[in-house]
Design a binder for these strands. Structure first.
Lengths: 204, 204
DNA sequence: GTCTATAAAGCGATAGAC
DNA sequence: GTCTATCGCTTTATAGAC
């Protein structure tokens, strides 16, 4: 493995951690250099500017997030199992990347127009096999008439939002970190249950 | 009305808008001064430092948000009507304050420990009459066994998250701003329906 | 490729006149 | 209370030696 690749990746890794924690405007090039154990000048040597370093990292994170979703919605399962799998997938994602959702949404919010190109890849979701399955089942009358996007957003909301709003929810329920984890674990289970039951319109 | 009060309020107003858009570290005192049509020195005259100005604004926004919730959960209604009213209330809040949720969550996330005192007021929610009603109905067997906090988080998630993730959701569904508003309006209706039906465990 | 030193601009905060 | 001018520090970015 070449030495320059190693340094470049080391920078991306450490810069990623700091951007995720402090956002673009809160992060400092000096802090990134210190964290990576190199010099400030190296950051500019490899990525020219703070903004270009940030953009590369942001794009990777956004891609990773989108890929996680699209793969789940396109594999070989029934629509119900996809919703359950999506809940599981998102749970694992936010559990291991607690600070990514708020980071993504915040940076997108502060620079709505700038990232519009990068957001195009999320349009693939509407073309996923989940949508086709869902529409087909709805036509057959097996599912209550509902916008499939509402269903997906139900899962996204249910699992991702608690992590975004963790300080407030923890305070509401007087939960310590361990209790919050338990709370989220329980959510992972009931969120798909609730929406599936609604769609099938079947009480137990 | 005294002139100094008017200036102070003008500062709070304009600083609020800019902090909400750009966050603490992204906001600039010069920009706030320009927006308010006054001088940078005035900001320090009235609020000493950027941080103290920010804290005053942040606290007001957090209080406002919490009050909106607590009032709804404590008024005179059935638990079902409270969930529907909460959905309506949150919808109105985010509709008129699109950038507040992400602002709140982001600043709380970046400064978790610092705001712990201010978050104490959210503990009131657990003591609200909604919780008492809910536990009582659950004991009677009219509601499926569920953590009432999960129920509230369901409403919060369902309504607030879409605004936080608006860029991504709009892209997923290829929605323009008007279509997104319609999407959110539909959510306001179905989110409480879904959870109430689940709790009562009654198909139509 | 990697470092030190420094430029150049930005920013929060203060001094002091009015 | 309000302004101009400026201080002093921080931060991004570059120059140049090795």
């Amino acid at each position: 493995m070449k030495k320059d690749i190693s340094t470049e990746e080391k920078i991306l890794d450490h810069a990623g951690q700091i951007f995720k924690m402090k956002g673009f405007s809160g992060a400092r090039m000096q802090e990134i250099a210190d964290s990576a154990g190199i010099n400030k000048a190296m950051l500019h040597y490899y990525f020219r500017s703070k903004k270009m370093l940030f953009d590369k990292i942001f794009e990777n994170i956004l891609d990773d997030f989108q890929q996680n979703i699209i793969i789940t919605l396109n594999d070989e399962r029934s629509w119900e199992n996809k919703l359950t799998a999506l809940s599981e997938k998102l749970y694992m994602f936010v559990y291991h990347n607690e600070d990514i959702p708020i980071f993504l949404f915040n940076e997108l919010h502060m620079n709505y127009n700038f990232f519009s190109e990068q957001l195009f890849k999320f349009k693939e979701i509407k073309k996923s096999s989940f949508f086709k399955q869902f529409m087909s089942e709805m036509k057959k009358g097996n599912i209550i008439k509902t916008d499939p996007l509402q269903v997906l957003v139900h899962i996204f909301s249910g699992i991702i939002f608690p992590v975004v709003a963790k300080p407030i929810i923890s305070s509401m329920g007087d939960l310590n970190d361990k209790q919050f984890d338990q709370f989220l674990l329980e959510r992972k289970k009931i969120v798909p249950e609730i929406i599936i039951q609604y769609l099938k319109n079947t009480g137990v």
